[in-house]
Computed example of a mutant assay.
Amino acid sequence: MRVIIITSWGHKFCIEVSLKEPVVEIKRKIEQILGAPVASQILVVSGWELLDGLDMEDYPIITEGTNIHLTIKWMGPPLNSYHSSKIQITIKFSARQLHVEVERSETVRSLKEKLQIMDGTPIKRMSLFFSGIELHEDFRNLSEYGIREFSEIIVFLKGMSRVRDELPVRRLSVVVQTSSSLLNAAMIPLEMKDSSTVNDLRQLLLSSKTLPIDEYLFIHKQRIMRDNCSLRWHGVDDGDLLYVFKGAVCRSGY
């Protein structure tokens, strides 16, 4: 059955669980998706905390579509990766500037998409710089580059000749790791172009009947991967491990 995990900072995502599945296994899935250690997670349904030593069938209240609320109890200093408060930053073009509100956890790519909507500049022409350093890894969070409240980001526009000079396509050897409740935690080696999208990866696994027909969530380095973005965009490198779980991102929660 599919349940909905609702985080204390307002995000939602769906995961597939079975009645015999222990609570601690659900927490391990969440750890793969969010990076939150199992020991720091508190799962609650209708005011009842789910205990690690019990299975899903021990909680008859949990059925298809049940909302499970997730709270993170910090084991140390607060981590920026879970801090989703909004900040104001300044975007400087050569002849104008914009004031933009973003999430600390927002990616460089997401910021570029916002700027394209606001300013009309094609994403391929943008080079973003902060404190003299180019924000060249689209999948990185703004906070990973040290961007905070009132930071100034400078936008340089590439010439059209540079836009046409695309990076060469590389072939990657990756391993898809399933969850314990899916194919008994199988490890599936694959070769794909780094320009292939996550949806291409999904279709390859489905068309070859490696995975049964269902909805799946792919994770790379504790980040949920976007269907229409390439492996290169996600920073996938040769030999990397990709995790797959039954489930789907609940868009209404973002």
Rank of each mutant, 00 (worst) to 15 (best):
R226D: 14
W233E: 05
I219M: 05
G235H: 07
N228E: 11
S173H: 13
V236L: 15
I219V: 15
L183S: 05
L242N: 05
R170G: 00
R223S: 08
F156D: 09
R170D: 07
D237E: 14
N199K: 10
V163H: 07
F150S: 10
I224D: 09
V175S: 13
S230D: 02
S196W: 06
L217R: 05
Y216N: 06
L167P: 05
V174T: 09
I213L: 15
I154C: 10
R223E: 09
L167E: 12
V155R: 02
L190K: 02
E149Q: 15
L167Y: 01
R202D: 07
R164K: 11
Q177H: 13
L242D: 05
F218R: 01
D240E: 06
P168D: 03
R164T: 04
D200L: 04
C229S: 10
V176W: 01
V198Q: 00
L201H: 05
T210W: 07
D194R: 02
M187H: 12
T210V: 14
L217D: 14
E166M: 15
I224P: 04
L157R: 10
S161T: 09
C229L: 14
V175R: 08
G159R: 06
D214L: 01
S151D: 04
L211M: 05
F150E: 09
H234K: 01
L242Y: 06
V175L: 13
F218Y: 12
L204W: 06
L217E: 12
Q177N: 13
L242A: 08
I224N: 05
D227C: 03
P212G: 06
L242K: 03
M192F: 04
M192R: 02
C229F: 11
D194Q: 03
S151I: 02
E149L: 13
T197W: 10
Y216C: 01
K221V: 01
N199W: 06
L241Y: 10
K221E: 07
G159T: 11
L204K: 14
P212D: 06
R162E: 15
D165W: 11
E166Y: 14
